[in-house]
Design a protein around this nucleic acid. Structure first.
Lengths: 203, 203
DNA sequence: TCCTGCTATCGGCAGTGTGCCAATAGGCGA
DNA sequence: TCGCCTATTGGCACACTGCCGATAGCAGGA
């Protein structure tokens, strides 16, 4: 069937998006992509150049369309609009859970179970060590606490990138952020656990 | 040259690690890996099975050896040991900056510049939106503030994974964490900017 | 010292996937 | 209806992975 340029392009992207959500990048072949789109293999190259370019286009489409949070239109920020933003963001993520986990959540690994597991175990171990370093018993800790520490780990990675990769932070600036944020976070979630946190946070 | 099993294995892993830090996974071929290790291509399969297995082995070696923070030995946690842990962690990362950025920092993409750029732009846009949602002008904001918001984004991704992927958090639990943490973080870093944050953090 | 078995190491074969390009077919305007 | 324009196809050439039989270097025993 002969389709218009944009239509065909969109159609290929849609089926490719579906496929890339089920398997990691390397296990998806151009023949699969082609047959899923109902076209010949050569057409994919005609439209996107290479398999990699097609994949990048898929990712672009995913991260572009649902630009995550929903800031309220024009009225200035208050706590109500912040609540609404977070809720809106969570709604969006939940609706496209599989998509989000595959592309953004997996950090671009493209749903690679083994690699994900390795990195995840390392991060979990790090979180436990952080708990240990703060004198908290991991076994009796509530799930929120572990989640906060895992979250702190994600934040630490971002701040480190800000320091070493993008160079928008000096080591000292990054250090202060890393130092202060965990006590403050722990205190805000479970105030009874770390009484010393407030003092450190104010330092 | 004929080497002992463990020696040869370690030698191959070392040169493979070097190679995987310079290019993304797909652009490293087995012939390259072989010639870098000074052996024939077939030997790599003999030792590691497949290219993917070799790569996983490299990643395992990297994330295992420097298990990130340094918890102080036995004495209970106080703020001094926490300071030391963070410093120790930063020293470790800084010493192996390239390695860390490639494997952990890039989230497993394996130094894929284009893909990284796409995801990074999306995250940057999200950070700006968050600033906007809280009524902060991005242009006049200090770099630490932007870094904190980027860090909050990393934390939000982790918490979302904790909710949707690992299922250790309910939606409500995740919501509360996401809601509370940003005001608290902002307040701890730049107290003068968001006076309303304290109230929200206590809610 | 020579022989023999073991195993690290090599080189090539088969299958698969990508990238590309010339040829084809289908639709729209004249 | 004819002809051009372009979407679409199928096949060719190359690269790479995975595997396996063949080879070579080293050890221990006679």
């Amino acid at each position: 069937m002969r389709l218009d340029y944009d239509e065909r392009r969109a159609s290929i992207l849609a089926s490719a998006r579906r496929l890339f959500c089920t398997k990691p990048y390397s296990e998806v072949s151009m023949v699969e992509l082609a047959s899923a789109a109902g076209v010949a293999r050569g057409l994919l190259h005609h439209y996107f150049g290479s398999k990699r370019d097609l994949y990048l286009e898929v990712v672009r489409g995913i991260v572009r369309v649902p630009t995550l949070p929903l800031p309220e239109d024009d009225l200035a920020a208050g706590e109500r609009t912040w609540d609404a933003s977070v809720d809106g963001w969570m709604d969006l993520i939940e609706a496209n859970a599989e998509l989000w986990l595959t592309i953004v959540g997996a950090g671009g690994t493209g749903r690679d179970p083994e690699l994900d597991q390795i990195l995840d175990e390392a991060r979990e171990l790090t979180a436990l060590r952080v708990l240990q370093a703060r004198g908290i018993d991991a076994d009796t800790a509530p799930p929120e606490l572990l989640a906060v520490v895992r979250g702190y780990g994600g934040m630490a990675e971002e701040i480190t990138r800000e320091w070493l990769d993008r160079g928008r932070l000096t080591r000292e600036q990054a250090r202060v952020l890393l130092l202060r944020s965990l006590p403050v976070l722990l205190d805000s979630v479970v105030p009874e656990i770390s009484p010393a946190a407030v003092a450190s946070g104010a330092t």
